[in-house]
């Protein structure tokens, strides 16, 4: 795993929060996520990556933050559960899609987003790939970006 393959995702995350919500996320210290780490988040949007590399990109949020961000996208009011699922899916889709710009030397395909919810929900990480966890902080709360990508081996 190369830092150059991680950065596009971080840039995309920052760009998306700036464009969609007018927010500048703060980075907290990155770390290695253990596959069996307890998950402290309420909702995760997951995009599978295929093609030259295999992996997943996950954006995890607390329920309140997901609710607040969705409401902002809706232009106010209270977001329904369906709205939140929709918004988190779109969020992770845009992050993964935009990150491809920085990884153009590879052909990567991104899946449709899927959503996992509930306290301590489980994410099926692939084996033998380090997962980089990057917590972000915005005024509304905290969210978390996790990236596990197989080494991209050029052909």
């Amino acid at each position: 795993m190369n830092i150059r393959h991680i950065e596009p995702f971080i840039d995309a995350t920052v760009g998306v929060f700036r464009e969609m919500f007018g927010l500048e996320p703060d980075f907290l210290n990155p770390y290695l996520l253990q596959r069996d780490d307890r998950n402290e988040w309420d909702i995760s949007g997951i995009i599978g990556i295929g093609g030259d590399s295999k992996g997943v990109v996950v954006v995890s949020l607390s329920g309140e933050l997901a609710q607040a961000l969705t409401a902002q996208l809706l232009g106010g009011g209270v977001a329904t559960d369906d709205d939140v699922v929709d918004a988190v899916g779109e969020l992770v889709n845009i992050i993964a899609g935009n990150a491809k710009k920085g990884l153009e030397e590879y052909r990567l395909d991104i899946s449709l987003p899927s959503i996992v919810r509930g306290p301590d929900h489980k994410i099926a990480w692939q084996q033998n790939v380090p997962i980089i966890g990057i917590p972000f902080k915005i005024p509304l709360g905290r969210f978390h970006l996790s990236i596990g990508l197989e080494n991209i081996i050029t052909g």
Binding site: E19, I94, G97, N98, K100, K101, E104, R107, I110
Partner: peptide, 26 residues
């Protein structure tokens, strides 16, 4: 679309779209 890679853009233009805009929508 969120698809931002240039080969994606070319693919779409080749298929016949008149223009292409990358999400988030500006």
């Amino acid at each position: 679309t969120s698809e931002s890679a240039k080969y994606s853009v070319i693919e779409a233009v080749k298929a016949g779209v008149n223009d292409y805009l990358i999400k988030p929508v500006s």
